[in-house]
């Protein structure tokens, strides 16, 4: 059972507020005195997940759950879902628009970065329903 739970709404195309959920999660972990190296991994992977929700989804929720052994980050969106997860996981592959790329996003590194930072990483996606990314970092 999680001892601590927080949920943050993330809106589609809201680049002005992109990063707020990650920033809040980082502040919470810092207040809890979590090790700096673990906070860095959580910050990187949460930010990538949050940006993906802003860029690619119809909106969603980022959740933080902490228990005695791990930090769990979940990014759950409302669609459109990923047709080919294997392809999406390939470094350099991206479906981001030119506008998004001009902002320095859409390099096709988001999912690989998340996988690298997480001790346990899962992507579940159903086209037409949505995508859920679950990451655990052990503490």
């Amino acid at each position: 059972m999680s001892l601590i739970q927080y949920h943050f709404n993330v809106e589609k195309d809201d680049f002005d507020r992109a990063g707020e959920a990650s920033s809040n999660i980082k502040k919470i972990l810092r207040q809890l005195g979590i090790d700096a190296a673990i906070i860095r991994k959580v910050a990187i992977s949460t930010y990538e997940a949050e940006i993906n929700v802003v860029i690619h989804s119809l909106g969603g929720v980022i959740s933080l759950e902490i228990d005695t052994s791990s930090i769990k980050i979940t990014a759950k969106d409302r669609g459109p879902g990923i047709a080919n997860i294997e392809l999406a996981m390939q470094a350099g592959y991206s479906t981001a628009s030119d506008k998004v790329r001009e902002m320095g996003f859409g390099a096709g590194m988001g999912l690989p970065n998340m996988e690298k930072c997480a001790d346990k990483f899962e992507v579940e996606s159903v086209v037409g329903i949505g995508t859920t990314i679950t990451m655990h970092m052990y503490i």
Partner: peptide, 30 residues
């Protein structure tokens, strides 16, 4: 490239970038 910076820059670095939007600050802060 923000994802590249995210996975390679280190705490305390001076980051030189031509990007001018608020997400630069989000990355720097995180």
């Amino acid at each position: 490239l923000l994802s590249w910076v995210m996975s390679h820059a280190n705490k305390g670095d001076a980051w030189i970038t031509v990007m001018s939007h608020a997400n630069v600050v989000a990355v720097a802060s995180l």
